[in-house]
């Protein structure tokens, strides 16, 4: 059972993550993207970006780094082997582009208990240098109760 007292708890900013061009290409291939804006620097620049643009779900890579902090927090008491992804949303203030150096700050938005199960919603804010908000990632995990 997830500790309901962690609702509202904020976790410190992660170490900066430098978004690489080849990482974006690798992720784009993995999600079956063929969009030149993800893959081709010239196409991305022609569209007004500095470098290749990350696919819309790439922010999950940054979110995971914050989530790992929570899953390792004994106070939260989340058993990762019982976790199922319930829902996910990414709200972009702007796209993530190769060369961005990103940090994320996570807050436990809510903890709800449904019988033996818990539903935990996390809000992860992703910032570029100069505290520029790039993306808000909202994720709900369902933690199945023990038998």
């Amino acid at each position: 059972m997830v500790n309901v007292n962690v609702q509202g708890k904020k976790y410190p900013a992660t170490n900066p993550y430098l978004v690489g061009r080849e990482k974006i290409r690798e992720f784009a291939h993995a999600v079956k993207s063929t969009n030149p804006i993800n893959l081709d620097v010239f196409a991305a620049q022609a569209a007004g970006y500095n470098d290749v643009v990350a696919p819309p779900t790439f922010a999950v890579v940054i979110q995971e780094r914050s989530l790992a902090t929570v899953l390792n927090d004994p106070e939260a008491d989340i058993d990762f082997s019982r976790v199922v992804h319930g829902d996910q949303r990414f709200i972009h203030a702007r796209p993530i582009v190769a060369g961005d150096e990103l940090v994320s700050v996570l807050e436990v938005a809510s903890v709800k208990t449904l019988g033996a199960h818990s539903m935990v919603t996390f809000e992860t804010k992703i910032f570029a240098e100069g505290d520029e908000l790039v993306c808000t990632a909202i994720s709900t995990l369902v933690v199945r109760g023990g038998e």
């Binding site: 819309p56 199922v84 996910q88 702007r94 796209p95």
Partner: peptide, 13 residues
């Protein structure tokens, strides 16, 4: 035609 134009995307699994 441009991956950067998806500004908000959510799903339930």
């Amino acid at each position: 035609g441009d991956a950067g134009k998806v500004i908000d995307y959510g799903v339930r699994f």
